[in-house]
Design a protein around this nucleic acid. Structure first.
Lengths: 276, 276
DNA sequence: AACTGTGAAAACTTTCACAGCA
DNA sequence: TGCTGTGAAAGTTTTCACAGTT
């Protein structure tokens, strides 16, 4: 637990990924994204402060995160954008690219196939499956939708490392079983249901509605806070006067912080990003 | 911080949402989903253990989470499915429903409009906007795509509480500014870029590629662990013998745990769910 | 002077284990 | 008996503040 940085030129040139904290890994993906943009813009060097602002986190947190990958920057200067990007790609296992199959060529499935963000980051769609005869044979992008019955065989040929499930809820577990039987080790499901799979298979779930529900909660919370504020104000000023009320309303615009909550439910709503 | 449960019949009948931990709120959405399924199936009562398994978390965690909403279950019995569902909906501010506008009627935008998960959970799409003349005027579901130029006016009429951005990266900030100017308080962006907005506006970002990158990391990590295992084995058994190697390979199937990682990057990869 | 890398403290979350109630 | 609700312990993550480097 203390010597992961002791292997700069050691075993294989890369720090052990074993004990990079979960929370850090999740954010590395975010940094990577920002770095890609910076690289495109031709920026050569970036400071932790700049990168942190762009990624929507505190600079100390960012430095701590990067420190788990070993030394990456130059003191007094900053980080080399390209070098850091490559390092993170390497740690996340993205350098080699990934071959992806997707099951469920409905609205969402087709949207994902067309989503540029995947290809751009080393994920290559190699197979597309559905069970609906109406859909089988149609083209999405440059892929033809194949019968899900061919899935097992296709997995042998295509050698994908990641599978994506975008089928209706009722079919999700069945497709998952099929993928597991075919030997897939990593599955990303967009079905809200929890999927049963052997412990050795990594299954992640994404629920698009959860994010909306989190927004909803924040709305409900601010409404409640405002109400509470009003109550307190009323209690203080016995004879509620309009000017006071207006001031109170203005104060309701709390200094909540300029956070752009990151990719998912990861980031708390608080936490100041820019030192004022 | 100690008396949130002191208001069972107090101020307004609902516990203050102020100090429900972030992590808990994120999971409430998951529980809600499972409860909806149970309710559909006609299940009346559910125990923390059952609910926890279905949601992919530990039962203690689930009970702790629910305890923040005040007492919800009956000791020795379990939770009333309908009652608990309604309670969570209430806390998340979903009871009243939400009116949603979406900007960017591309692949992803159309997929989201067609995504049943939203409507089913009280989110109602009321407006759909794009800037592409080719797309303006086309229908998606029962909505017609309108010119983004009409957005500001439309927001006044439609009174949405949530806005969703699914435009290309380059346009995202502009659309965000537009929405903020129109008075939107809650924005969900599917652009990977961090968006600038006033502190009072809640902006959440979803990056669909992040989840894939997390899968990629896990793959890379297991590969590394296996390699390390092999190294150790080789070290132990001086004259590497094939039988030993096979046993080692079998052991490589580590007891990683049967987790179905929740909606996003929330759940760690470890943590056993079912007591064996 | 500027900025990284990092121990150590603070905050938060999860897990445990059991008291309390139907 | 069976299951919820919850303090207190354990574990994880974030924040602070500063030593170290160019």
């Amino acid at each position: 637990m203390t010597e992961q940085h002791e292997t700069p030129g050691g075993v294989s040139g890369r720090a052990l990924q074993k004990d990079i904290p979960q929370a850090t890994v999740a954010r590395l993906a975010t940094y990577l994204r920002v770095l890609a943009v910076l690289a495109d813009e031709g920026t050569a060097i970036v400071s932790s402060e700049e990168l942190a602002v762009a990624a929507g986190v505190g600079s100390a947190k960012l430095r701590k995160d990067l420190s788990f990958l070993g030394p990456n920057g130059v003191r007094g200067v900053g980080y080399d954008v390209i070098k850091l990007r490559d390092r993170i790609e390497d740690v996340l296992g993205l350098s080699e690219g990934h071959r992806v199959v997707l099951v469920g060529a409905g609205n969402l499935g087709r949207a994902l196939v067309g989503y540029g963000g995947f290809r751009r980051r080393g994920f290559c769609m190699v197979g597309l499956f559905d069970s609906d005869p109406q859909v089988i044979g149609t083209s999405v992008g440059d892929l033809r939708v194949r019968d899900v019955a061919e899935l097992t065989d296709a997995v042998r040929t295509l050698e994908p490392t990641i599978a994506v499930i975008t089928v209706p809820d009722a079919a999700a577990q069945g497709v998952c079983d099929l993928l597991v039987a075919a030997g897939m080790q990593s599955i990303l499901s967009f079905s809200p249901l929890a999927l049963d799979a052997p412990a050795t298979v990594e299954v992640r779930r994404v629920d698009l509605a959860v994010e909306m529900q989190l927004l909803s909660f924040e709305l409900a919370r601010s409404a409640e806070l405002e109400a509470a504020d009003r109550e307190v104000a009323a209690g203080e000023t016995v004879g509620a006067d309009p000017v006071r009320a207006a001031a109170e309303a203005a104060r309701a615009v709390r200094p909540v912080t300029p956070i752009q909550t990151s990719h998912a439910a990861m980031e708390p709503t608080k936490g100041s990003v820019v030192t004022p």
